[in-house]
């Protein structure tokens, strides 16, 4: 009797399952994001201090959430790959990294565009901005390391080790940049004692966060499917070359 993860972990089974689930997740993401945007622009009131600019929050916070969540997922996949040696975990880690980097980049860009009208500057060396910037560099490092090693299985293992080093270092980096004072507003959604943000703004925010998460899942599934196909193509091409060489050898004899 196989467990669900074991059945999912078979690449062929994964292709079948993800193929049938993908359109539904993508559709759900589109609907949820559309509803979230409607709430964000037509229902949510402008912030009494920041005015309309606070509407940037509805994309900034989901991007920042994904920036962190995706790194955690990459680290978990890396752990799964190193411990269980399962290729699908590597496919998951490899394809999530560029997506995570993109969301981190967007969190930085939208945050910067929010900061200019609110704080009067595009960039401050505040604790959260700095730690998200360093998170972005960690993503870049993962991509650079993987692309710089020709042997693919070696690149996978080394990148997995780097991802685990990164997840150990991240809290320390976070702690160190928090050491100074911070200009950023303190955490207002996930905190002890309930959110400090008004429901009228919290609802669209949560809807958008859900929509972005669904969208990431859909994109990740698609990227994993592409990667599995890419590996099949490469394996088949290798087999073809080997076959051709073998027949050449046979002909020469």
């Amino acid at each position: 009797m196989q467990t669900l993860t074991q059945r999912l972990a078979n690449p062929t089974r994964f292709m079948e399952l993800s193929g049938s689930v993908l359109p539904w997740i993508a559709g759900a993401a589109a609907v949820v994001i559309a509803y979230g945007l409607y709430l964000a622009f037509y229902v949510a009131p402008p912030d009494y201090q920041q005015g309309e600019t606070a509407r940037i929050m509805y994309i900034h916070v989901p991007c920042a959430w994904l920036a962190m969540a995706v790194y955690a997922m990459v680290a978990m996949s890396a752990f799964g790959f190193l411990v269980f040696r399962h290729p699908l975990a590597d496919v998951s880690a490899k394809t999530a990294v560029p997506l995570g980097a993109a969301f981190t980049f967007l969190a930085l860009v939208t945050g910067s565009l929010w900061g200019r009208p609110t704080w009067g500057t595009y960039w401050v060396w505040d604790a959260r901005l700095t730690s998200v910037l360093i998170l972005f560099f960690l993503y870049l490092g993962l991509m650079a390391l993987r692309s710089s090693i020709e042997d693919e299985s070696l690149a996978s293992k080394l990148t997995a080790i780097l991802a685990l080093v990164g997840i150990v270092m991240l809290p320390i980096i976070k702690f160190s940049v928090d050491f100074g004072n911070t200009l950023h507003q303190p955490a207002s959604v996930l905190r002890v004692g309930g959110p400090t943000i008004d429901t009228a703004m919290l609802t669209p925010l949560l809807v958008m966060a859900l929509g972005f998460t669904l969208m990431f899942v859909a994109m990740h599934f698609k990227a994993m499917r592409n990667e599995i196909l890419r590996r099949r193509v490469r394996a088949l091409q290798l087999a073809q070359v080997e076959k051709a060489q073998a027949s050449q050898l046979a002909a020469a004899e």
Partner: peptide, 20 residues
């Protein structure tokens, strides 16, 4: 060790970890 752009890559990997 086995990457073909060693020096620059070390900087990219290690410098963020030197932040603390």
């Amino acid at each position: 060790l086995r990457s073909y752009r060693g020096g620059l890559l070390i900087a990219l990997l290690v410098l963020p970890l030197y932040v603390p």
